[in-house]
Simulated assay, not measured.
Amino acid sequence: MEYTGTARRPAAERKRDTLKRLTTERDIWVSTAHPDHGPHQVPLWFLWHGQAVWMCTGADSATARNVRAEPRVRLGLPDTSDVVLIQGAVDCFPDDEVPAEAADAYTEKFGWDPRTEEGAFLYIRVAPKTVRAWHGEPELRGRVVMRDGAWLTSQPSTE
């Protein structure tokens, strides 16, 4: 999505635009950290399903190891002029324990079912606690569109 305007969007419009991107885009940057190994960042395919972001990665990947040790993550959509940053807590599901509805939706979106692969995979569910969305400097104030897991209906005067 490319943004070229300078007008500040109201909170309801930012929420709508954010949800549209979460339902239509395919890649998201996942930032994790491990107490012993430090930060790690990787792009993964994602699915917005059930008011959460779902991803899947190898069960032995650095991302999987990190979220098991430290379940707080930050996610970012890849457009730097139309920023969406998500902070949340992780729930992990081995591929043989993932809720079928979420795994089926993931398979439908990507045409790939990790549950049928030879290696072990981990499904990662991130329930957003905070979402920030902005287009450039005019929208820096009021960029928080979700706080404590609830979408904001109006923009606060700070942040």
Rank of each mutant, 00 (worst) to 15 (best):
Y3N: 10
Y3S: 11
G5S: 13
T6E: 03
R8Q: 06
R8E: 01
A11W: 02
A11Y: 03
R14P: 01
K15D: 04
K15T: 15
R21T: 01
T24M: 12
R26M: 11
R26C: 04
R26T: 14
I28Q: 03
W29N: 05
V30L: 10
V30C: 03
S31M: 06
H34M: 08
P35I: 15
P35Y: 09
H37W: 15
H37G: 03
H37C: 11
P39N: 03
V42S: 10
V42K: 11
L44P: 00
L44F: 04
L44C: 02
W45H: 12
W45I: 05
F46S: 04
L47K: 00
L47W: 02
W48L: 01
H49Y: 13
Q51M: 13
V53H: 02
W54Q: 00
C56D: 01
C56L: 02
C56H: 02
D60I: 11
A62V: 13
A62K: 12
A62I: 13
N66A: 15
P71T: 09
R72M: 14
R74L: 08
R74G: 12
L75E: 05
L77Q: 02
T80W: 10
D82Q: 13
V83T: 04
V84F: 00
V84W: 06
V84L: 13
L85Q: 02
Q87F: 13
A89F: 06
A89M: 15
V90S: 03
F93W: 13
F93H: 11
F93S: 01
F93Y: 14
P94T: 12
P94W: 09
D95W: 15
E97F: 10
P99N: 15
A100P: 02
E101R: 08
E101G: 07
E101F: 06
A102V: 01
A105M: 07
A105H: 07
Y106I: 03
Y106E: 07
Y106T: 12
T107L: 08
G111I: 15
P114I: 12
P114S: 10
P114W: 09
E117G: 08
E117R: 13
E118F: 12
F121D: 07
L122Y: 04
Y123P: 04
Y123M: 00
I124G: 11
I124A: 01
R125V: 07
V126A: 00
V126N: 01
P128D: 10
K129G: 13
T130M: 09
T130N: 05
V131E: 06
V131R: 04
R132P: 02
R132C: 04
W134I: 09
H135Y: 02
G136W: 05
G136C: 02
G136Y: 06
L140N: 08
R141A: 13
G142H: 08
R143M: 13
V145S: 06
R147H: 15
S154F: 09
Q155R: 06
Q155E: 14
Q155D: 04
Q155P: 04
S157C: 15
S157K: 15
T158N: 12
E159G: 14
